[in-house]
């Protein structure tokens, strides 16, 4: 194909507004804060699944811990009448992600599954995506990390270990999604069944507060959950069109 043809074809294919919205899948997650107990199992599961570094005490004190999924704690009231609100915060996989536009080398972009991806090999470490992200869920590798034995034996072979100087963040366990899509193809199916793929956090959640699935499929569990009247998005006023939706905690008036 000649150069000119490639240009015209690319233009024809992508010129319509919304070429980025017609994804094959549109993975989304809902987190029911009514059901969330704040136990932190999801955090641990994420750590184990995605080869997150154990940064050590010094780096933790400096505020450099890497937690793709973190629990945000908000305290309300004065002792003894205190209340703790917990909200799990991870990459929201925004459809209009501020972090994507700012990367000078396109190391982060939207893939055909509606996921906000991070390409470690392409990243040059300007860290501007972390500044542009209003959810503060991008983590930078300030140095190379080491896993003490025997922890180095349990690294997940499906996930790359990141080197110093690159940005990383929640991927919705893209290795599992890819595996599920491969399985579906091997079985001769066109699409992944609902519930066939679960990120580590969703799989682990003991109270089943997290639901993951394809938003494009109106019958999927996550789509039903999205229609819940309690559904809201964090910092929705910034128009990031995030893919993670929280279900509000409902409390009786006191």
């Amino acid at each position: 194909m000649s150069f000119l043809d490639r240009i015209t074809e690319g233009w024809r294919k992508n010129r319509k507004p919304g070429y980025y919205e017609n994804f094959d899948y549109h993975w989304a997650m809902t987190i029911d804060l009514d059901q969330c107990s704040g136990c932190g199992a999801c955090v641990t599961a994420c750590q184990a699944e995605n080869n997150l570094p154990i940064v050590g005490e010094d780096a933790f004190v400096k505020g450099r811990e890497v937690k793709w999924l973190r629990l945000e704690h908000y305290w309300e009231g004065e002792y003894p009448d205190v209340k703790l609100n917990v909200i799990p915060m991870m990459c929201q996989h925004c459809d209009s992600a501020p972090c994507e536009t700012v990367c000078p080398v396109s190391a982060t972009y939207h893939n055909q599954d509606g996921l906000n991806t991070q390409i470690y090999n392409r990243c040059i470490g300007t860290r501007s995506c972390a500044v542009y992200c209003p959810y503060e869920v991008r983590y930078f590798n300030y140095n190379d990390h080491e896993w003490d034995s025997p922890l180095d034996q349990q690294l997940n072979p499906d996930v790359s270990v990141r080197e110093k100087g690159v940005m990383e963040k929640c991927t919705f366990c893209i290795q599992r999604i890819r595996q599920a899509k491969d399985n579906a193809k091997d079985d001769g199916r066109r699409r992944v069944r609902d519930g066939e793929v679960q990120p580590a956090c969703v799989q682990t959640c003991p109270s089943k507060a997290m639901v993951f699935g394809d938003r494009n499929d109106p019958k999927s569990k996550v789509s039903r959950s999205l229609r819940d009247p309690r559904a809201y998005k964090v910092l929705d006023e910034l128009n990031t069109n995030s893919s993670v939706v929280y279900l509000k905690k409902v409390e009786a008036e006191r």
Partner: peptide
């Protein structure tokens, strides 16, 4: 414009050009 069209990266929900 041409590099964007040749290697389309959906970025931040922005149009191709």
């Amino acid at each position: 414009a041409i590099t964007a069209v040749l290697y389309a990266h959906p970025v931040g929900g922005r149009p191709i050009i």
